[in-house]
Design a protein around this nucleic acid. Structure first.
Lengths: 200, 200
DNA sequence: CCGGGCATGTAACGGGTTACATGATTCC
DNA sequence: GGAATCATGTAACCCGTTACATGCCCGG
């Protein structure tokens, strides 16, 4: 069984859902597209780990709503209690930061500033979906608990990333006067206009 | 050109290295195995983005040391200044946290504590490799600058993750007395030994 | 009337992992 | 003597993305 299978079981353990719905919820724990979700659901169903029923809708296409079976819950519980977890992050931004020296200061700043905008957008999106959950009312076994702590994790990491971005922007600003100094030493005679442009 | 190609160019832009060495350095920006690195190097070489020379070693197998070409540097610079970056994280831990309700308190704690151990190990490993880099001496264009800020980013995020883990452990401890209370209400008569075990 | 959302799927392709192959040296 | 590190590569396979296919409803 592959990891996506467990991610799906994990979501269906909280709530019965259609394959179409799963895609949205999966984003927070194990992103996947429909084209991967549907075949995986079929495979899990064949193994008896989940059941489904057709639900008719008005004004919308009918859907197949999947629920986890007792067998599925056991399989999931077994996997969750196993130790060990693999984790991979692949972020093009890191490569660009690694080569930030190739950019002039304006472009370097832009790179970081766009990252800030990007992460802030993600925080806003999450706030919208998280809504009202009352934190201290949540028991560990309630369905809301896990969502709540995962949400908190994401927000914390994203805020830390933003704070790091500002730290980098500060370093970039500091490096400016230093360059100016080097340049002054090099030429000895200078033009005030050029100096101003390098400082601001 | 795929992203791994740019990651490799980015590393070779700082330092000429063999394919074998690249694997270690790639981990921090775009993890890849040898089996993927060697064919990619060949492809980049065919495009004229990098050159190589054979270096004989004593007591070790000979190696092919790759360096970036002027064409490669231009190609990389172009890509780095393009906006937009895709980023994916797939972490089995998140799925397990999502299903934390299936675990009893001991196992739930163990899950989080093992995460702490895992992240702390990673921090230690990094400290070892980062060594002495004097932070305020680094100019933006120096090769050390990018490494330095990427290192700082990783450390910050990992520390934040650990602090989140402790926050979760606290919540788990708090939820214990609540469960005890529910249980007491349920049975009305109780055994002090059981109460103690649930509290500590 | 056309684009987007809802809904379910299949097919082709590319990226990434695991396994295989080889071979020298060093350390336990 | 066997495992671990250095070193380069190929082949098979699995996972994930993009594109294709279909169809109905709704809002601009």
């Amino acid at each position: 069984m592959n990891t996506l299978g467990y991610a799906i079981l994990s979501l269906l353990n909280q709530n019965s859902r259609s394959g179409y719905d799963l895609a949205d919820y999966l984003d927070s724990i194990w992103p996947a597209k429909h084209s991967q979700i549907y075949p995986t659901l079929a495979k899990l169903h064949k193994k008896g780990l989940l059941a489904f029923e057709y639900v008719e809708q008005i004004g919308k296409p009918n859907k197949k709503v999947f629920s986890i079976t007792e067998k599925g819950r056991k399989e999931l519980a077994k996997w969750v209690s196993e130790v060990q977890f693999s984790s991979v992050t692949r972020d093009e931004f890191l490569i660009k930061v690694h080569s930030i020296g190739l950019l002039d200061i304006e472009k370097a700043k832009k790179l970081i500033e766009e990252r800030i905008a990007h992460v802030e957008k993600s925080i806003d999106l999450q706030r919208a979906s998280a809504s009202i959950e009352e934190e201290d009312e949540l028991d560990r076994n309630s369905t809301g608990f896990a969502k709540h702590i995962l949400h908190e994790r994401k927000i914390r990491l994203e805020k830390e990333e933003i704070s790091w971005c500002h730290w980098v922007l500060d370093l970039l600003k500091k490096s400016k006067p230093k360059r100016l100094l080097m340049w002054l030493i090099g030429i000895k005679q200078f033009d005030l206009g050029v100096v101003e442009r390098m400082l601001f």
